[in-house]
């Protein structure tokens, strides 16, 4: 079994120490960081996402795999930056103003990073202006908004409206998620998609970026 396959399988097993060790070995063997990322880490996370969608593994398995992914990614990130390797895409994400629930948003951010995307996490209680300004500043292709309260859902519409005002609407994809939301609500406020979990968010974002 080659090194990158072992790396992918260690990641799928959620073995962070082993993933870090194999990533070091791959670099020591002279492999470039980009194939280690693509064929080792991202390949492993893709399998994890597929198995989760097929109900073959559980949420804790996905999150342990994500931790393992980060163990490898931490070693690769400075090398990828130094080599000028572009990320798979850029997503600005946050929990909307007035809402302090961030577990769901964190899980989505973890999965997006696991898919090789750059995630600018604005945290929680994020004002519409901050979403839009961050998307402009970082040149993001996607804005992801999370809300767990019916009282904070309307803030998502404010972000959509602000994107219209600033000429970003249609250029930046707007995705929403959270327990009280639905695809119908996303359509109603003019968002591009409703994502029901992190794995689904990865699929949706990849589709928008043309990398699915």
């Amino acid at each position: 079994m080659d090194l990158l396959t072992r790396l992918s399988e260690s990641l799928q097993g959620g073995d962070a120490d082993q993933v870090a060790e194999l990533t070091r070995q791959a670099l020591a063997a002279g492999l470039a960081p980009k194939p280690i990322l693509d064929q080792g880490l991202i390949a492993g996370m893709t399998v994890v996402g597929d198995r989760f969608k097929a109900h073959e593994i559980f949420l804790p398995d996905v999150l342990l795999a994500a931790k393992a992914m980060y163990a490898g990614l931490d070693l690769l990130r400075p090398l990828l930056a130094k080599a000028g390797v572009a990320t798979g895409g850029r997503v600005v994400i946050g929990t909307v103003r007035g809402d302090l629930h961030d577990i769901g948003k964190n899980l989505v951010a973890i999965m997006l990073r696991g898919a090789g995307l750059e995630v600018i996490d604005l945290g929680k209680d994020v004002a519409p202006e901050r979403f839009v300004a961050a998307a402009q500043e970082h040149g993001a292709q996607v804005i992801g908004m999370s809300a767990l309260l019916t009282t904070t859902m309307p803030v998502m519409r404010q972000v959509v409206d602000l994107c219209r005002e600033r000429g970003l609407y249609g250029k930046v994809k707007l995705i929403v998620g959270g327990a009280p939301l639905s695809a119908e609500y996303a359509r109603e406020i003019g968002a591009d998609a409703y994502c029901f979990d992190g794995v689904n968010a990865v699929d949706v974002v990849k589709r928008y970026l043309g990398t699915a």
Binding site: G14, R51, H55, F58, L59, P60, D61
Partner: peptide, 26 residues
């Protein structure tokens, strides 16, 4: 609540047991 079988999850994989035990320890 985490969707792990034994707790009502829907995994169909034959190698559930060790992962269930890992989740249980967590």
């Amino acid at each position: 609540a985490q969707g792990v079988p034994g707790g009502g999850g829907r995994s169909r994989s034959p190698d559930d047991a060790p992962r269930r035990e890992r989740a249980r320890q967590l």
